[in-house]
Design a protein around this nucleic acid. Structure first.
Lengths: 336, 336
DNA sequence: CTGTTAGCGCATTCAC
DNA sequence: GTGAATGCGCTAACAG
């Protein structure tokens, strides 16, 4: 029926163990033998059964990428990064949504581990900060890497940028343009980045002697609708801000939509800045100034850390960039 | 080490085979016995190894969703629909990108089949129309369902809407608003929907005695940038159209961006219509009129067809809807 | 450097 | 209705 390692061993005239060695890139195989086996594999078009490998061995060559996020662009970027690394290393990616507020969260992930024998798990925010999950993963001795964790830095390997510094840089850039009244749209309360970005914003204001005004700090949820609502609230203020910094790009898009509705020219009359977690801003609204966050790289590096499989805990810090697009000069004179 | 079916059988005081029967929902198990086994499974938190099941049995409880598409929203929708159906049926979803123009396409999919033992494959456009792939899948006797295939309707089960009728309805709606000069932005040449939508557009024009003008039919690639380029080409015409119908929403978004750049009010001065394959339009541009295509349902139904697993070929036709958002009245008088 | 033996955890024949 | 044996395709721990 199915082509097996035995067929390959017969075709190559070696034992099945030797074929296995070649498959697993083990040492102690003579080059000549290896070549013989490889050409037999090639000639037959043999592909080892992942199920059999997982069952017999310690590894399954599978990595799970979990997510609790409705932002298609963001998730797609994570996926692309993780997949690229998997492909390069002969791994498969299991991609699974979950709900950090579900009572079955831990159970579901336990099921994932037991059923699939995954070799490692990637936890993007907000999953990176679910204490019960981290604890369970440790108890089960499953390797995992967190993306942008806000808590327990020593609990696992992780990948992050300095969100606080990035938000500070962005805010400082707006101040450098002459803005003194800069609105902020906060991120989703479940995400650690939300408070980090707020901290950065505050730090920049403080450094320039600008008093914080709670009226121009609006809640958000990292999605378009909440950005739109926050933008409306800010622009309808008796004394609206001259610039608005949204904690991610979906929300910046929402703010921009409101500005269009109000016939406020961007960036001439209002500067809008965003954290581009996704490609949405880059795609649709070039005039926005953004902090570029390397989402795809997060997933790539996290996967690499998992596959390298050192037990040691490593923190990888990636770079961010503030990108100026179009003019973000302060308004001519409409605001106070 | 690991919890196995044997542990469950001992806890429940039955044989391994009986546990297996319960796991697979086979008949011929007394209710009492079933309950005993189920509570033992629950108590121990047992989860059967997918690898062992795939290796020993005929089924792997895995379905693969392939895609060759860079549209994050579209792919995310497909994923959501397929995943929902998998979850309801105890299946896992393997999610894998590919490239229909790669010489290794068939080999990659062969590898997928052999390595993972998938029970079935879902082929969204443009994969649904790769003849060599369909042939290979038949040769290997692997179940598959195609989404919106343009060719060989009897080659497999499939899910689709009537793209031609939908485009005709959309175009007719624009004509009903008084438009006589309606630009069209074509889709990606690899996709069957592209020509179907063109056909529908033509049919509507013909039905209303409007002559087709090749100058206002622009090529596109189903992405934002091509929509932007097509929009610019159309709006820079000496005699620009009063309405533009983009073959999907990413391109409609591109057209809208150009309209904004040109200070053309939408929908007051220009009507823009799109096929909303994704949620982009719904999210960002409420004034657009769209044909709603149930992308998520496509994937859900395709997965269900696969899991039901009847060998027979079934064609499922889903509904589309033309949705009016905001006014799409023809321009006051800027166009000819 | 290479081969032999014994399972991994389950579904699948069959008996009972 | 239920149970005991056999093997899926591969890796592991040993020999040589």
């Amino acid at each position: 029926m199915r082509l097996t390692i035995r067929d390959v061993s017969e075709a190559a005239g070696v034992s099945i163990k030797t074929v296995s060695r070649v498959l697993n890139k083990e040492r102690y195989v003579r080059d000549e033998t290896r070549l013989k086996v490889e050409s037999a594999i090639e000639a037959l078009g043999f592909r080892p059964s992942a199920a059999a490998r997982a069952l017999a061995g310690k590894r399954s060559f599978q990595i799970a990428l979990l997510y609790d996020n409705e932002n298609a662009y963001y998730v797609f970027d994570l996926l692309a990064g993780a997949r690229k690394c998997c492909l390069e290393n002969g791994f498969r990616l299991i991609f699974q949504p979950c709900d950090i507020h579900s009572p079955r969260l831990i159970d579901d992930i336990r099921a994932l581990i037991d059923e699939t024998h995954v070799d490692g798990i990637i936890l993007p925010p907000p999953l990176a900060d679910v204490a019960a999950l981290i604890e369970e993963l440790h108890r089960r001795d499953v390797a995992f890497v967190r993306i942008s964790p806000g808590t327990e830095p020593e609990a696992s390997s992780s990948v992050h940028i300095d969100d606080c510094a990035a938000a500070e840089a962005m805010t400082t850039a707006l101040i450098a343009l002459g803005h003194r009244r800069i609105g902020l749209v906060l991120g989703h309360p479940d995400h650690a980045s939300t408070s980090d970005r707020l901290d950065g914003y505050r730090r920049a204001l403080a450094a320039h002697g600008i008093a914080e005004d709670p009226a121009i700090i609006q809640p958000g949820r990292y999605d378009f609708e909440s950005g739109r609502a926050a933008g409306a609230a800010l622009l309808d203020l008796p004394e609206p801000p001259s610039a608005i910094f949204a904690s991610n790009d979906e929300m910046a898009a929402g703010v921009l939509a409101v500005a269009h509705e109000r016939d406020i020219a961007v960036p001439e009359q209002l500067s809008i800045a965003g954290f581009d977690d996704t490609t949405l801003c880059r795609l649709v609204w070039p005039p926005l100034t953004t902090v570029h966050q390397p989402t795809q790289q997060f997933a790539y590096v996290a996967t690499a850390l998992l596959i390298d499989g050192q037990a040691e805990i490593r923190r990888r810090k990636l770079d961010f960039t503030v990108i100026e697009r179009g003019s973000t000069a302060p308004p001519g004179g409409s605001a106070a």
